[in-house]
Amino acid sequence: MLTEYLVVSALLIAIGATGVMIRRNFMIVLMSLEIMINGAGLFLITMSYYLGNVSGQVMFIFVAAVAASETAVGLAIAVMMYKRKKSVDVNDFSILRK
């Protein structure tokens, strides 16, 4: 049982990381980040259950709260990006390099 949960958790993180690395649409990148966070959350809860210790579950509550606020900030950034360039392609935003 434990192994399966852990595999799913690792898969979620890997899928999310891949999404962050290869996708250029900012909305998709945000969603991939959410997937990674949920992978990590699943890992926390699994281990909490396995070790019989509730702190992992408590911590997930915090992670979920942080994830929600992070999404809010991310979406606000997306709106601002679109206002400036009429695009949400992350590669259009490389002005820090120049």
Partner: peptide, 14 residues
Amino acid sequence: LQTGFVNNYAYWIS
């Protein structure tokens, strides 16, 4: 390393 592309940064972080 400083490409300006977020994806590259994410790659290096990972």
